[in-house]
Simulated scan of single mutants.
Amino acid sequence: MWTKHHKKRYLGRFVVPLLTAAFLCYFGYHSVHGAFGLKATEELKRRQAVREARLAELVEARKTLEKEVALMSDGSIERDILDEKARFALNLSRPDEIVIFHAGSN
């Protein structure tokens, strides 16, 4: 019976550990820097906070507008609301009035 004897190769011992280390490095890198990694998650949370703040501003603006519409559309338009809207739309004021413009007002 013939048998072959191989010399022990020292390089063969390192193949599996090197492949394992390569896979771990690849997946480790992408778990931090990838499209769904830790850094992308932080950016997503930051954008979510900014958009929630913007949503709160828009909700407040909508409530204000709904309140103004309710005052004007219930059948009896209040004189001060009508006067305010007309002056703003026509860009008019009395000579004895002081007009203060706010940056956020329309």
Rank of each mutant, 00 (worst) to 15 (best):
H33D: 03
E42N: 03
A103Q: 04
E84G: 09
I100N: 10
K85M: 12
L65V: 08
K4L: 09
L38H: 04
V59F: 01
S31N: 08
G34C: 06
V16D: 07
F88Q: 14
D80G: 02
R94G: 08
A53E: 06
Y26H: 07
T3D: 02
T20E: 12
S76M: 01
L55T: 13
L44I: 08
V50E: 15
L24D: 08
W2C: 04
E42A: 05
R62M: 04
H6M: 09
E78K: 09
K8S: 07
R47E: 15
V69Y: 12
L11I: 11
V59I: 12
P17T: 10
P17N: 08
S76A: 07
P95G: 07
S93L: 04
Q48P: 00
F14G: 06
L38T: 01
R47H: 14
S31D: 05
L19I: 08
F23P: 01
K45H: 06
V16C: 00
G104H: 07
F14Y: 11
L65D: 06
Y26T: 02
R13I: 05
E60G: 02
F88T: 12
G75D: 11
L18D: 14
H33A: 04
R51N: 06
E52G: 00
A53K: 10
E66N: 14
T41A: 15
V50M: 13
L38N: 02
T3R: 15
E60D: 07
A53M: 03
R51Q: 04
A53C: 01
L92I: 14
L38M: 03
K85A: 07
M1G: 09
R87P: 00
H33K: 03
F27R: 10
K7I: 10
T20K: 13
L82M: 11
K67Q: 10
E43D: 09
L82K: 11
T41C: 00
E66T: 13
L18S: 10
Q48G: 05
V16S: 13
C25E: 05
E66P: 00
V59E: 10
L90M: 13
K4G: 06
G28R: 02
N106F: 02
F23T: 14
F88N: 07
K4N: 10
K4E: 09
